[in-house]
Amino acid sequence: MKSIRLSHGGGGEETWKLVREIFLKYLENPILSSLEDSALLRVSSKLSFTTDGFTVKPLFFRGGDIGKLAVAGTVNDLAVMGAKPLYMSVAFIIEEGFSIEELKRIVESMARTAEEAGVLVVAGDTKVVPKGQADGLFISCSGIGEVLYEGLSCRNIQEGDGILVTGPLGDHGACILAQREGFDFGEDFESDCQPLWDLVEHLLLTGLRVHAMRDPTRGGLSAVLHEWSHSSGLSFLVKEEAIPIRTQVQGLCEFLGLEPYHLASEGRLVLAVHPEDIHKALERLREHPKGKEARHIGYAIRPESHPSVILETPYGTKRFLEPPVGELLPRIC
């Protein structure tokens, strides 16, 4: 059998075969393998909980696939709250006729990423919908993490805090857009999709005063800074020439009339750090392979009239960085 049938979602022998030969084969652990209606977990501390859906198109892209993205996206939402990822649930919505070999590739990729992130998939579900009622495969995930570092919140950002990013921004969004539209930027250009708990822990172990952290997914850097501005009541001044943007991303945005600061990243962090700890935080981030291109791009400042996000150009002039409006790039994650 080479493709998914409606009977694979019917709860009978075909469903069991799919569970045994794909999901348990790659994701097996004692909790998942018990195959109960719910996972029994033992946690004795404060928890972080998140949920997310993944509909990226194409399902396979340079640097990743929907399986890797689903795990990375879920654990990164936990990590930015100072929570060590522990457990995940995964639900698959599969279109009738979807390739079983492609499903195996996606689940195997998910297993590799979960192992890298140190998270266990402990519950799951599979539904199959008739052909034409979904576009291949959608994934929905929830995650639980143990909060090891409390106090990370956009409401804790203070005037003077430095704004740091852990690497070039917009790679994921540009990669998906380029692949969709048939642009070829060479084999070296790929999505930044990756789990980030190891980088977060590497930084927070130092005790440096990190006030807030966010992964700039949909809406990119602009969305993060506008959300922070709303919540903190502060403005943000960032230097355009300090923001790391790859040449391929800049060129694509110029060609299509897009703002690179609106494009998603799936393996980067934006941080607000106490002004006295900026230099040490940069040094610490750059020690880690996932933070070696970290940059200090700006500051939280007192608003002149209302909270806003301001870009200082290389010429010393300033302009407002507008928030994302409309759906610039659907199905990016």
Rank of each mutant, 00 (worst) to 15 (best):
G118D: 07
D192V: 08
I144D: 03
I163G: 04
S142D: 13
K84R: 15
R180K: 08
V210P: 08
Q179S: 01
H211Q: 09
L78N: 11
E187L: 06
R105V: 03
C154P: 13
C141A: 15
F183E: 04
L196I: 07
H211W: 11
A91Q: 06
A134Y: 07
D161W: 07
L203D: 04
E115W: 11
K131G: 06
G145A: 09
G182F: 02
V210T: 09
I100N: 01
E190T: 02
L148Q: 12
E116W: 07
K84P: 02
G97M: 05
G136T: 13
L205F: 07
L148H: 10
P130T: 08
A83I: 10
D161C: 11
H202C: 08
W197Y: 15
M81I: 03
E116M: 10
G186E: 04
R180Q: 03
I93R: 10
V122C: 10
T126N: 11
D171W: 10
Q158K: 15
S140N: 13
A174P: 07
R214V: 06
E102I: 00
L204A: 08
K127R: 15
E95S: 02
Y87C: 01
V210E: 08
D192C: 09
S140V: 15
A178M: 01
D215E: 13
E101N: 06
V121H: 03
G145Q: 11
E150N: 09
T166N: 06
A178N: 00
T166Y: 07
D77L: 13
E95T: 03
E101K: 07
R209M: 08
A178E: 01
A123S: 13
M110P: 00
G162N: 07
